[in-house]
């Protein structure tokens, strides 16, 4: 049985892993227990700034710290980062300040809080900002490692983490985890499933089941949506001839959107997008949400069949 963990725990561990760097400061908006920055706060209260329930202020306090040489890591729920979008746009991204934002509880997988808490658009909106790196890791190992690598970025970043535990996929593979580089989890020749976040594990499940039907499906963990690993997509496109994207996010503007933009300019082949089909979520358990919104293993399998059938032979 594989270890189970939530990416938000990876973020919390990641902050501890970089705590020796005294430039690291953590900002909270009353959700540190949820985003898991609380572990850092408990050990380093003097380098943790409580901003109360005030996300707009938090993003710009972080900008002021970054402009003074610090490395601020600000977290809240993904949905509440969006409340501060213009602060992030004008006060963080435009001056290109290394503020690292973590939006936890992203996606419909977050579950029973319902549609108000399920950000399905965060990856899309942050991807539109110049200078911004956008990430959505699939397990705690990669979340912690990507958090560490934020220290090397000259500009800002946004990382979505998830509330609920999923299978850990990158145990002992830290060397393969690099911002901007997708990770090939499985090679395939018939179709490539490119996924992020909680759907990476579902993509692996789908590939295993497809193998039973005689279909050879590859799987890529595309934890970085921006900058997108276009070289890897080109390679997968050339070797399989069709692609499926899979994300717990709107089909508009997220990973599927990014891949569509890339393919249409570089390698026009069939693409099937698995994602939230332009609607809001509702209350339900994580698995129930994936079933309801067409994001589960079976949906990825169907999308793979559709993509393969569209290939011109």
């Amino acid at each position: 049985m594989s270890r189970m963990a939530a990416t938000r725990d990876g973020y919390g561990q990641g902050l501890l892993n970089i705590s020796d760097d005294e430039r690291v400061v953590v900002l909270e908006a009353d959700l540190g227990k949820s985003t898991k920055s609380l572990h850092f706060r408990k050990q380093f209260p003097e380098r943790t700034v409580s901003c109360g329930i005030g996300e707009q202020n938090m993003m710009l306090v972080a900008a002021g710290l970054a402009a003074s040489g610090y490395k601020p890591f600000a977290s809240t729920f993904a949905i509440f980062t969006e409340r501060a979008f213009e602060q992030i746009r004008n006060g963080v991204a435009r001056p290109n300040l290394p503020v690292h934002i973590c939006g936890s509880h992203g996606g419909t997988h977050t579950g029973t809080d319902g549609g108000s808490a399920q950000s399905i658009e965060d990856l899309a909106i942050y991807r539109t900002l110049p200078n911004m790196t956008v990430m959505h890791p699939c397990d705690d190992v990669s979340a912690a490692e990507l958090t560490r690598q934020c220290l090397d970025l000259a500009g800002p970043s946004y990382m979505r983490t998830a509330r609920n535990k999923t299978r850990v996929l990158h145990e002992n593979r830290i060397d393969d985890i690099k911002i901007g580089k997708g990770i090939v989890l499985r090679d395939g020749s018939d179709v490539c499933i490119i996924a992020c976040g909680v759907l990476v594990d579902k993509a692996l499940e789908a590939a295993e089941k497809l193998a039973g039907d005689g279909i050879d499906a590859g799987v890529v963990d595309m934890h970085t949506l921006k900058p997108l690993d276009g070289d890897l997509i080109n390679r997968m496109a050339a070797s399989t001839g069709c692609i499926v994207s899979a994300e717990d996010h709107s089909i508009i503007g997220g990973l599927g959107g990014a891949i569509a933009e890339h393919l249409s300019s570089n390698h026009p082949i069939p693409l099937e997008r698995v994602g939230v089909n332009d609607r809001f979520g509702e209350s339900g358990q994580a698995e129930e949400m994936l079933d309801l919104l067409g994001l589960n293993t079976g949906d990825i399998i169907e999308a793979a069949h559709r993509a393969i059938s569209r290939k011109s032979n």
Binding site: N57, M58, L60, G64, S68, N90, G91
Partner: peptide, 24 residues
């Protein structure tokens, strides 16, 4: 010291530079 133009942002940024000075 700050790229402004959108109102209501400078005080938050200034709070950040003030905290940085204190940390330093």
């Amino acid at each position: 010291d700050f790229s402004a133009g959108s109102l209501g942002m400078g005080l938050s940024f200034g709070m950040g530079t003030a905290i940085a000075a204190r940390l330093d």
